[in-house]
Computed example of a mutant assay.
Amino acid sequence: MHAPIGLFYGSSTCYTEMAAEKIRERLGAEWVDLHNIADGDIAAVENYDFLIFGIPTWDYGELQEDWENCWDELALLDLHGKTAALFGLGDQEGYPQWFQDALGYLHAQVVTLGARAVGYWPAEGYQFEESKGLTEDGSRFVGLALDEENEFELSDERIDQWCAQVMREFGLSQ
């Protein structure tokens, strides 16, 4: 027996892992199974109707290495009938032209595979130049945008608000 939500993340510096753990803590361990994609098979996403994906953007808008390693396998999965929310980590001051780009890449992939995406997050209040992680109109990110380098003091409140939003959008409100 597994929890209703599968949370899959890749993390090189442990910040994405810590955010994943905070999300699981906020939602409750009975609701969320954590999966570090470096340690398991990405095909396990097919075992869940509700998915949360966590991805940091590396360097100049690149995928994190664990996501890059399973990207081709992810592309073969069928996510029709699944609902997915995403969160990303980035550095809006150090990499303002690529802030949350990997979040945008993963969102495009998940939607292409048939998942319904939820958990969009307002872009207001962030300071960056460009992002592939924005909705078409540029008003929202395609998932929760966290910046542990420059705005770590805002992360807990953002995670709290986003978790409540995602549970409503999943139809699993506690």
Rank of each mutant, 00 (worst) to 15 (best):
M1A: 14
M1N: 12
H2E: 09
H2S: 15
P4F: 02
I5V: 13
F8T: 01
F8W: 08
G10V: 09
G10R: 03
G10C: 11
S11A: 09
S12G: 15
T13W: 02
C14V: 13
T16P: 12
T16K: 11
T16V: 11
E17Q: 15
E17G: 03
M18K: 15
M18L: 14
E21D: 12
E21K: 13
K22C: 12
I23E: 07
R26N: 10
W31Q: 15
V32F: 09
L34G: 03
L34N: 05
H35C: 10
H35A: 13
N36P: 09
I37S: 07
I37G: 07
A38L: 10
A38G: 11
D39E: 14
D39M: 08
D41K: 04
I42Q: 03
A44Y: 05
N47A: 15
D49R: 15
F50H: 14
F53T: 06
G54L: 05
G54T: 04
I55G: 05
T57K: 11
W58L: 01
Y60I: 07
E62S: 11
L63P: 00
E65G: 12
D66E: 10
D66N: 09
N69Q: 12
C70E: 14
W71N: 00
L74W: 04
L77I: 02
L77P: 03
D78G: 03
H80N: 13
H80P: 00
G81Q: 08
K82H: 09
T83M: 12
T83C: 05
T83E: 00
A84I: 07
A84W: 09
A84L: 05
A85E: 06
A85M: 01
L86T: 02
G90W: 03
D91I: 02
Q92K: 09
Q92A: 10
Q92Y: 08
Q92C: 10
E93A: 14
E93V: 13
E93Y: 10
Y95P: 08
F99T: 07
Q100K: 08
D101A: 05
D101G: 04
A102I: 03
A102R: 06
L103V: 01
L103G: 00
G104T: 01
G104L: 01
G104W: 02
G104R: 07
Y105H: 12
L106F: 03
H107P: 04
H107C: 14
Q109T: 09
T112R: 15
L113I: 04
L113Y: 05
L113R: 08
A115S: 04
A115C: 07
R116T: 07
R116A: 11
V118F: 08
V118D: 05
A123V: 01
E124H: 07
G125I: 01
Y126E: 06
Y126I: 05
F128T: 04
L134P: 00
L134Y: 00
E136G: 12
E136Y: 08
E136M: 06
R140N: 14
F141L: 11
G143K: 06
A145N: 08
L146G: 03
D147F: 12
E148P: 04
E148N: 12
N150A: 05
E151V: 04
F152T: 01
E153W: 11
L154F: 06
E157V: 01
R158E: 13
R158T: 00
D160T: 03
D160S: 13
D160C: 09
Q161E: 15
W162K: 04
C163N: 02
A164G: 02
A164E: 15
V166M: 04
V166Y: 00
R168H: 12
R168I: 09
E169T: 03
S173A: 14
